[in-house]
Computed example of a mutant assay.
Amino acid sequence: MAGSSEARAGAAGGRCAPVWVFELGLLLTAVIWGGSFVVLKDTLDAMTPIWIIALRFGLATVAMCLVFHRRLARYLDLSHVVAGVAIGLPEGLGFLIQNVGLVGTTPGRNAFLTATYCVMVPFMNWLVTRRRPGASSVVAAATCLAGVGFLALSGEKGFGLGVGDLLTLVSAFFFALNIVAVGRFGAAHDTMVITTVMFAASFVLCLAAALALEPVPDFAALPGSFWLSMGYVVCCSTMLGLILQNVGQRHVPPAQAALLLSLESVFAVLFSIVFYGETVTPPLLAGFALIFLAVTVSQFGPAIWGRLRIGRK
């Protein structure tokens, strides 16, 4: 696998920069991803949600083909196609449903409810590997449910989650399925090639859904601000975010990298307050805090629990 050999070569050659540079890159990724929630919310005024996601993946696929055409020519084969489709279909469904859900909720709620996929992954992986989730996963799940309960308590119409919130939770399920698929198929394939196929599969899925469910937009009538927003989503959130994540995770310990990337939801709320005018009430803040705590426990819990068990021996 080319990606693995490159990683080993990089490790053998040593880091070209201090660790904090790569940590800063992961933090920047979280900032970029957090900003995309507000940016996508604004694009919904100009285009229907499924067409936006189809356009996003279509442009991202073209960009990946232009940048990595030599790697595609060298490594693309049936195995990469099958693996990319297996990873791309749940990802495409996740983004599709998430963006539809964003119509009926705020960027901050959308971001934190999406983050619950981190808590779902150990339980979905259980179905694939038959490896039971540890105690930390159970604690994280309970904490996450409490957080979602507080979000329901903060609803505008009393207790309950809106349609947009519920759709976002469904999207989190597909994002968790995407993570499980990456763990199953990703390691044996070239990273950039399989990512390109993944984007292409997501594009085909979203395009088919858009053609079936939404009217074809008038692309010529779209304002310049819309294309600027799409430029941010494609170039920064999708392309640059992917590169920073891949480079950063080669040099930063996995748990620390996951925590830095999970700050995406925190930045999404900050941007939503500043640019979207989202009001943070005490129940909403409690819900955000509990979900973030659940994500943190799901990432760091296994290592901490393992050390405690070793300490007792």
Rank of each mutant, 00 (worst) to 15 (best):
A17D: 10
V233W: 02
R309Q: 13
G34E: 05
G14L: 03
L72Y: 03
F159V: 11
S136Y: 10
V247F: 00
D218H: 09
V180Q: 03
A294C: 07
N178F: 13
F22R: 01
G84P: 00
T29I: 07
V138H: 15
V252N: 01
L26W: 08
W33Y: 01
Y232D: 00
G231F: 10
P282Q: 09
W51I: 02
V121I: 07
S4T: 15
L213I: 06
P122A: 09
L151S: 09
G104F: 09
V128F: 11
T48E: 14
N125E: 15
T106I: 06
V297H: 09
L145H: 04
C118H: 13
R312L: 13
E23K: 00
A289H: 05
R74K: 12
G162M: 04
V266L: 12
A86H: 09
F292A: 08
P302Y: 13
F300K: 15
D77C: 01
V234D: 00
S4F: 15
C118D: 11
N178R: 14
A289L: 12
L285M: 13
Y276D: 14
R56M: 00
L228Y: 05
D218S: 08
E91M: 15
A286L: 14
S298N: 11
F203E: 02
S229Y: 13
V82H: 12
G224F: 02
F95D: 00
G10S: 11
A142M: 10
L151W: 07
S79A: 14
V19I: 14
Y117R: 03
H69Q: 06
V103H: 13
V269N: 08
A60S: 08
V204Y: 08
G104P: 06
S298Y: 11
V31Q: 09
G149V: 12
L177S: 12
S136R: 11
P133M: 09
C65R: 06
H69S: 08
I52N: 14
V31A: 08
L24Q: 11
T114F: 12
F292S: 06
V81T: 02
A2F: 15
L205H: 06
L261C: 09
E23G: 01
L44H: 06
G224M: 03
A294K: 09
S36F: 10
F292E: 10
Y232P: 01
L308D: 04
L177D: 05
F37R: 08
R70W: 10
F173M: 10
T106H: 02
S272W: 08
P90F: 02
A115I: 07
V139P: 01
A212S: 06
V233Q: 02
S79P: 07
T196L: 05
Q98V: 00
W305E: 14
R307I: 06
Y117V: 00
A30T: 09
A181R: 03
L213V: 07
A17F: 12
F95P: 01
V82I: 14
A7L: 08
R56F: 00
W305Q: 15
G164Y: 04
L270K: 06
S262Q: 05
A212Y: 03
I87W: 06
S4A: 15
I179T: 02
N99M: 06
V204D: 03
A46V: 12
S262E: 05
I50V: 13
F271M: 05
D42M: 15
Q98N: 04
A152H: 10
A73R: 13
C235T: 11
A221E: 10
L76E: 07
I179P: 00
A2W: 15
I304Q: 06
A208V: 11
L72I: 03
A7K: 05
P223V: 04
I194T: 03
L211P: 03
S202K: 04
A188W: 11
